[in-house]
């Protein structure tokens, strides 16, 4: 018994150490990013891993002076992500509601066809999308970065799964009270599906925010670039410039910390929706 207890304790200790170790490994690069952002660009070239010799806000200042375009790009990213999130969540919720709570012809088949298209990765259709938007003369606008990201089958799926759990009696009692379809949707469905809607919004926002391949191809003009595309351009060793690592790190902090805060505030809901979205086999 004694031996068992000891063994249990050792096991417990090993588990604890493993967990803490992994946490440190996870956090270290992020801390490094923050620490590095307090170094000057010239110090970053000598010392890109230790503590700053001089703690300075120079890199952050450069974001607003020499590299003020980054702030503009940051703003573009925000506009793109917010518009896409709002529109995307709205139309996905509408569709999810139809799939979850209405019976209509073709419901199953449409739904399964949509699910099947999940197998087509968005990268496959990039050439077709590019030519389509080129024909509309929309390349190098904010719209071209927003529009294709709006419809997301995953969103419909996730929200529908959640809505299936909303009791139909709620909807029926609203109808008896004389509420129309849209009113039922707004007053009953949206409030009761709020947890999934808000966590899907965060997932969608993250998705659009982190998008790289598509904007890289369609956003080549400085004034509409998102920050994800413009940040790596500062690494450039080609044009005879020395990379400005301090500024890059400050930019990275700028576009990571707000997301981390939003995520931390809504962590539970987001992680639940991750589970909902992942198990669809």
């Amino acid at each position: 018994m004694e031996r068992n207890l000891l063994k249990n304790k050792i096991e417990y200790g090993i588990g604890m150490i493993c967990f803490i170790l992994v946490c440190i490994l996870v956090l270290a690069p992020m801390l490094l990013m923050v620490v590095n952002s307090f170094k000057s660009n010239s110090e970053m070239l000598r010392n890109d891993s230790g503590l700053p010799e001089v703690w300075t806000l120079e890199s952050y200042k450069s974001l607003f002076t020499t590299y003020s375009s980054l702030v503009k790009h940051f703003y573009n990213s925000i506009i793109i992500s917010i518009i896409s999130t709002i529109c995307g969540t709205f139309i996905c919720t509408l569709a999810a509601y139809a799939f979850a709570k209405y019976k209509f012809r073709g419901r199953e088949s449409i739904f399964y066809v949509l699910l099947a298209t999940l197998m087509i990765p968005s990268e496959v259709i990039i050439p077709g999308q590019y030519l389509f938007f080129a024909k509309l003369k929309l390349i190098n606008t904010l719209a071209v970065q927003i529009l294709p990201t709006i419809p997301a089958v995953v969103g419909v799926y996730m929200i529908r799964q959640y809505m299936l759990g909303i009791p139909t009696s709620l909807i029926e009692s609203a109808k008896i009270d004389g509420a129309g379809h849209m009113r039922t949707f707004v007053t009953i469905i949206i409030p009761s599906a709020k947890p999934i809607i808000s966590s899907y919004m965060i997932l969608h926002f993250l998705d659009v925010w982190q998008n790289y391949t598509w904007p890289l191809l369609v956003a080549t003009k400085q004034n509409i670039m998102p920050i994800m595309v413009s940040l790596p351009t500062l690494v450039d060793s080609v044009i005879g410039f020395v990379p400005v690592w301090g500024t890059i790190m400050a930019g990275s902090v700028l576009c990571s910390i707000p997301l981390i805060i939003v995520f931390l505030l809504n962590q539970k809901a987001v992680m639940e929706s991750v589970i909902l979205g992942s198990i669809k086999g």
Binding site: S68, K72, F74, Y75, I78, I82, N223, V262, L265
Partner: peptide
Amino acid sequence: MTKKITLVLLVAFVCFGTLFAAA
């Protein structure tokens, strides 16, 4: 509380961006 902070952050982003977005 959570919602409020999220909202404040959101508004802050937009204001912040508008300030520097002048082309």
